[in-house]
């Protein structure tokens, strides 16, 4: 660093330092979900964070480096340990399988500093949480944060079955009056219409779960007249496997083949080119990349680009989107 920034260089996202950790505990919760707990290697404390934050976990899986976002679910004020809960995805590209099958207590890993794209709105008179399945994780941290200040919240949590109800026992034991559980296999479902109707003014609604649930909750809230700014959702997409394709990076003068189980972003990083990112799940917008030339079909999967940007083929989010065609040249 020699001088304050010179004129008009477009800002790059500024990365915080990564945190080296050791896996201190692995706790299977049920058939699908396992909790991983981490301690720092350097002996310092973890940064505090805000409920809803995630960390990006780096995994060295053979030759492949994967980086997946997971919501932090430990107490935000707790600085000795971080915890995430991971659902095994047998169809996915293998990030969750790697954690479930290859990571053992004592392994060293790298985490990003916490980033929050799913914050509580602290003006809310009441926080109404709707969770589906593994979507419970960000709420675990938000509930702890609110409890520390006697905040007003209520949870509606829908799970497939009692066997797969991660943290149901813990939540019900501690917060019998604020927690409502619904099991699919018992044909129980959230009576959303009545739930939304009965809320005091100043309530904020948060939903995290499968895409279908998020869409349903957002649609219902909109038609019940809830202001957009009072409805919050978090949906990280995991990159999906797909047909391999070739890409050329114009600025760096490099070319690479994106593998079936690799994301475009990961392939770019494999070349040593590092686009900025915060979420790697199609939500934060940081890795947005200009397309210089293309002949083929874009498989856009992100929540970031506007529809017209997607159809025009001039931008792509390499974290989750793919390409099927002959020529793809990116401004990287």
């Amino acid at each position: 660093m020699t001088a304050p920034a010179p004129n008009s260089t477009a800002p790059k996202s500024i990365g915080a330092e990564k945190i080296k950790v050791i896996v201190s505990a692995i706790v299977p919760l049920n058939n699908l979900v396992t909790r991983f707990e981490f301690k720092r290697i350097d002996g310092y404390q973890f940064p505090t964070f805000s409920g809803g934050a995630h960390t990006v976990v780096e995994m060295q899986d053979g030759d492949l480096k994967r980086s997946n976002p997971y919501s932090l679910m430990s107490d935000p004020a707790e600085t000795e340990t971080y915890a995430i809960s991971v659902r095994r995805d047998d169809q996915g590209r293998g990030g969750s399988l790697f954690l479930h099958q290859k990571v053992q207590v004592g392994a060293t890993m790298t985490l990003s500093s916490p980033v929050n794209l799913f914050s509580l709105d602290l003006r809310a008179r009441k926080h109404l949480f709707v969770a589906g399945g593994i979507g419970i994780t960000p709420f675990m941290a938000q509930i702890k944060q609110l409890d520390a200040v006697h905040g007003n919240w209520e949870l509606h949590y829908s799970c497939r079955s009692p066997e797969l109800g991660s943290y149901v026992d813990e939540l019900c034991a501690k917060h019998a009056h604020s927690v409502n559980i619904y099991y699919d296999d018992k044909k129980q479902s959230i009576d959303l219409e009545n739930l939304l109707d009965g809320q005091p003014i100043g309530t904020h609604l948060y939903v995290c779960g499968p895409k279908g649930m998020i869409d349903w909750v957002r649609r219902s809230a909109a038609s019940a007249g809830w202001p957009d700014a009072h409805v919050h959702h978090e949906e990280f997409l995991a990159p999906q496997p797909g047909k391999p394709f070739a890409v050329r990076l114009a600025k760096s003068g490099l070319s690479v083949e994106v593998g079936e189980h690799e994301s475009l972003l990961e392939a770019i990083e494999r070349l040593g080119v590092e686009p900025p990112y915060l979420c790697r799940g199609g939500a934060c917008g940081q890795c947005e990349t200009d397309v210089l030339e293309s002949e083929g079909i874009f498989i856009h999967r992100d929540h970031w680009l506007e529809d017209d940007e997607k159809s025009s083929g001039i931008k792509i989010m390499p974290c989750v989107s793919r390409f099927d065609g002959k020529i793809l040249v990116l401004d990287r």
């Binding site: 304050p4 920034a5 477009a10 800002p11 996202s13 500024i14 990365g15 915080a16 330092e17 940064p47 964070f49 500093s113 916490p114 980033v115 900025p276 915060l278 934060c284 917008g285 940081q286």
Partner: peptide, 19 residues
């Protein structure tokens, strides 16, 4: 517009500055 985009993505432990 661009400055705001930058500020929204400022991360914990990675402060920025300008004059």
């Amino acid at each position: 517009k661009r400055a705001l985009k930058f500020l929204l993505s400022i991360q914990q432990g990675a402060p920025a500055r300008r004059l």
